[in-house]
Design a protein around this nucleic acid. Structure first.
Lengths: 210, 210
DNA sequence: TTATTATTTGATCAATTAATCAAAATTTTA
DNA sequence: TAAAATTTTGATTAATTGATCAAATAATAA
């Protein structure tokens, strides 16, 4: 179990090793949520997992390897949650509504995971010192691509009017992200109201034809 | 010059001390922009300022004091830039347009300051471990308050239609912030196009009556 | 069973951190 | 000028960081 996953996606790691990795990742999420990225040292993570720091080093090549695994899992989870919900609708208009609602709902149901995701996206950097938020992860991209597909689909079907798809997608994601990260709005407007109002605002913006 | 500013906002610090503080803050901005908050140690900042680390400790009570000074200056600058531009317009519609354009333009003309602001807002925490982004700084609030005032003004004058002001403000700020922080959109759409499209989208969202 | 392999720990490593301090250098004051 | 106050540095502090290693423990295979 020396090697960190290089190429092999699914490989021959024992059940116990995979379970341990998962436990460590969960502890890392808790740590990020509680004390933030800057203070999230291996010893803090180990403390929350109830294990020694050396054990983390045994299961992960280095801290970057751990954070990478963490962010991959978090993005996979939120992505599949959102994409699954969206797939239930037929029309672009309905898909757009479900996209917004699901994106916001995920935060409400997974606050710690959401906080951890924010911490690592905004603070984490690759070994080459490139910020994660400038990277555009695959799973992150997946959601963005789906959003653009919905917008494009709506335009072609005549459900939506004319607008710049990249910018519109950015507006929608920005509005969702704003509620995720900024507590000011969170305190003033509850999740359901925000979702409903956002759907209404976006509907007007895309020029929905009843 | 032992004491760090506790209550005295403007006090009796020599010109040279103030100049030195400013130099240190500028070096801190450069450091945050170049290597990010996590790596921005006092020694890294001192290196870029061409001074010893002890000198930073002499002029600032501690690292938090420095970062606090830094974020205050950065927010003051961007706030006054935006508010000054907005004040040139008369109608709510024009103010809204200038607000969006000025907010985006500031990023284009001050990329390093913008990057530093992002780094510290998302990574910095108070001594009580509260993330800055959950705090709602005074100068940050200033801009938000002005935005809401514009939206409210437009509704009362009949320029805008009906919408939830808090949510609409959040959407607009989110769309602006998205372009600031996420490189994906930055690479696909240039600043001017984004500003123009965003104005167009928001105009539709607020329901502008020609 | 025994031998082999996988897992886990505690001790330890060098590096870096923020901060302190006495002494030196500089500037200001008298 | 000389004295006093301010500014600056280099050395040092204790604490923490991520990582390594040999030895101990546990699980698996023979």
């Amino acid at each position: 179990m020396k090697e960190a996953n290089k190429e092999p996606k699914e490989s021959k790691q024992s059940f116990i090793a995979e379970a341990r990795r998962e436990q460590i990742v969960e502890a890392a999420i808790k740590t990020l949520d509680e004390i933030g990225y800057v203070s999230a040292s291996l010893s803090q993570i180990a403390k929350r997992a109830g294990i020694s720091t050396a054990l983390i080093s045994y299961h992960f090549a280095d801290k970057y390897d751990l954070m990478n695994d963490l962010i991959t899992r978090l993005l996979e989870q939120s992505s599949s949650y959102i994409l699954e919900r969206v797939s239930r609708a037929d029309t672009a208009r309905e898909k757009l509504r479900l996209f917004i609602e699901a994106s916001l709902a995920y935060q409400g149901t997974h606050p710690a995971r959401n906080a951890a995701l924010l911490e690592i996206i905004f603070n984490g950097r690759t070994p080459e010192n490139i910020p994660y938020y400038k990277l555009g992860d695959d799973d992150e991209e997946l959601v963005l691509i789906e959003l653009k597909r919905i917008l494009s689909e709506g335009q072609q079907s005549g459900e939506f009017g004319a607008f710049h798809i990249d910018v519109m997608a950015s507006v929608i994601q920005g509005a969702i992200g704003e509620y995720m990260s900024y507590t000011g709005i969170t305190k003033r407007v509850d999740l359901e109201t925000y979702a409903a109002e956002l759907v209404s605002i976006v509907s007007r913006a895309v020029g929905i034809n009843i």
